[in-house]
Design a protein around this nucleic acid. Structure first.
Lengths: 147, 147
DNA sequence: TCATGTATTTAGAATAAGTCTAAGTTGAGA
DNA sequence: TCTCAACTTAGACTTATTCTAAATACATGA
């Protein structure tokens, strides 16, 4: 299992703690926010809000409210610490890899993998004449060959 | 305003009625289904289920149930008559252009435009070594230059 | 140190999108 | 004409997310 986040230069120049990352983006590092950010930095599973809640609720001495999870995810998204990923109807997934990249959805397992932008390089210019492209997201569906 | 659907060879060889299209895909053309399919074939606005409901509810002598709209959209999707498009959290949009194409989201207006696949050609092969790509969707965000 | 004010967190209510249920309707074929 | 399966319906339900109002936590200035 690769862990893109701890080696992602876009997220940070060195391996930073969640707390440092939040501070650098102007987000007050409360215990709840640190635990949630930390979980997202450590996983590559593109979890939903609910999955975040169950994953981290044991990590705090106090109960973690569902509202806090949603508040925090929105705060982190607005601060550019994480990104939303839409792969299926009706659910939003989150990704702490905020570098320019795309996703590969394994239609058999539901597994979602990051695809680095350099694999998909030229595409951004394709529309240059008629559109001002701020960004784009490529969503692949398929199957992993082995694994 | 371009109308991709009536000229889309993938949808049909000639301009077909919604009724003929449904028959050709093995879907019984009830009045509700015909009206909904017809609306989707005529628009390029990528409507949500709710937008479909308000757009077509006047077109039938009887009341059109919300459940029927959802049932029909799912039936048409399963039959390959329409496709789901995910551009924003929490809402599913529908597109009667089932040819291989992508989308451009104008971040100012929310307008969603179709981008033909030939504009985005090579990308499908990029992952060939490690993944079996069944398909992919490119979602562009940006602004229209003029319009 | 203490009081105060603002930000944050919380539980639970509210909302919105979509699905389910059970009853009624339709229509094709015997 | 009768029957049966498919379809539609209203409304209940579910699920994901947001809102609300009260409680808590902190940093700051007196």
């Amino acid at each position: 299992m690769t862990d893109h986040n701890t080696t992602d230069k876009t997220t940070a120049d060195k391996i930073v703690s969640a707390e440092q990352l939040l501070l650098s983006r102007g987000v007050k590092p409360t215990p709840q926010r640190v635990v949630i950010a930390d979980y997202l930095l450590q996983t590559d599973s593109h979890p939903t809000a609910d999955e975040v809640l169950s994953a981290v609720s044991g990590a705090l001495p106090v109960a973690l409210s569902r509202a806090t999870v949603y508040n925090t995810l929105n705060t982190l998204k607005d601060a550019g610490v994480i990104k939303e990923v839409l792969t299926e109807p009706g659910r939003v997934r989150y990704d702490a890899n905020v570098s320019h990249h795309h996703h590969f959805v394994d239609v058999k397992t539901g597994q979602i993998l990051d695809i680095p932008a350099d694999k998909v390089e030229a595409i951004g210019q394709l529309l240059g004449d008629q559109y001002k492209v701020h960004g784009f997201q490529v969503l692949f569906y398929g199957e992993l060959e082995q694994n």
